[in-house]
């Protein structure tokens, strides 16, 4: 499978690099009620998914375009991500 127009289709990373990846986007983590959530380094606010849910660092699945959309690793987020990518590839 090859990319088009010198453009990659995705960048993937090992889970152990999650913290480094988040730092690249100015995000860090904070413990809340015994659980480690992703927060915005500048505002200290919890980062939310497109569905408005906070993300535990263990659930972080990556980012996709749309300013910055943070993904959770659950099944519904997976379906929404795949459908969005399919729509983008069909409609540009």
């Amino acid at each position: 499978m090859s990319g088009k127009n010198d453009k990659l289709l995705s960048i993937t990373f090992d889970k152990l690099l999650t913290t480094d990846i988040l730092h690249a986007f100015g995000k860090t983590t904070k413990i809340d009620d015994g659980e480690e959530f992703i927060i915005d380094g500048a505002t200290g606010e919890k980062v939310l998914t497109q569905n408005g849910e906070p993300i535990r660092i263990s659930e972080f699945a990556g980012l996709t375009k749309g300013s910055e959309i943070y993904l959770k690793s659950d099944l519904v987020s997976l379906i929404q991500y795949v459908e969005k990518q399919a729509w983008i590839s069909q409609n540009g």
Binding site: K7, L8, L9, S10, I11, T12, F13, D14, K15, T18, I21, F60, A61, G62, L63, T64, K65, E68, L71, S73, L78, Y81, Q85, I88
Partner: peptide
């Protein structure tokens, strides 16, 4: 900048 170009950045298992 890669993300702005529409290239998703994904954890391996999710991908």
């Amino acid at each position: 900048s890669q993300l702005k170009q529409g290239i998703p950045l994904l954890e391996t298992e999710f991908h």
